[in-house]
Amino acid sequence: MTPAARRVLEAAAKLFYERGIHAVGVDLIAAEAGVTKKTLYDRFGSKEQIVVEYLADRDERWRAFLAPYLDAAPNPAARVLAVFDASRAWATPYSPKGCSMVNAHAEISDPAHPAYAIIIAQKQWMLDLFTGLVAEIAPHRAGPLGRTLMLIHEGALVAHGLHTFPDPIGHAREQARSLLADADAEAGADAGDRAAKR
Rank of each mutant, 00 (worst) to 15 (best):
G20P: 02
I21E: 02
G25V: 01
D27V: 14
I29G: 04
A30K: 03
A31N: 11
E32I: 01
E32A: 10
E32H: 03
E32F: 02
E32V: 01
A33R: 05
A33P: 08
G34Q: 07
G34K: 05
V35W: 11
V35P: 10
T39W: 00
T39Y: 03
L40C: 06
L40A: 13
F44N: 00
F44K: 00
G45H: 02
G45Q: 01
G45S: 04
Q49T: 03
Q49N: 15
Q49G: 02
V51R: 03
Y54A: 00
L55S: 07
D57F: 05
D57T: 13
W62K: 09
A67V: 08
A67Q: 15
D71A: 15
A72Y: 10
A73F: 08
L81K: 09
F84V: 01
F84I: 06
D85R: 10
D85C: 02
A86W: 08
A89I: 05
A89D: 14
A89T: 08
W90S: 12
W90A: 11
S95R: 14
S95L: 12
S95I: 03
S95D: 15
K97A: 15
C99G: 13
S100H: 10
M101A: 13
A104F: 01
A104M: 04
H105F: 14
H105M: 15
D110V: 06
P111H: 09
P111C: 07
A112G: 13
A115C: 06
I120E: 02
A121H: 03
A121F: 00
Q122W: 11
K123N: 14
W125D: 05
W125Y: 07
M126W: 04
L127K: 06
L127V: 06
D128V: 01
L129E: 11
F130Q: 01
T131M: 00
T131V: 08
L133Y: 04
I137F: 05
I137T: 10
I137M: 03
A138K: 04
H140E: 14
A142V: 01
A142C: 00
P144Q: 00
L145Y: 06
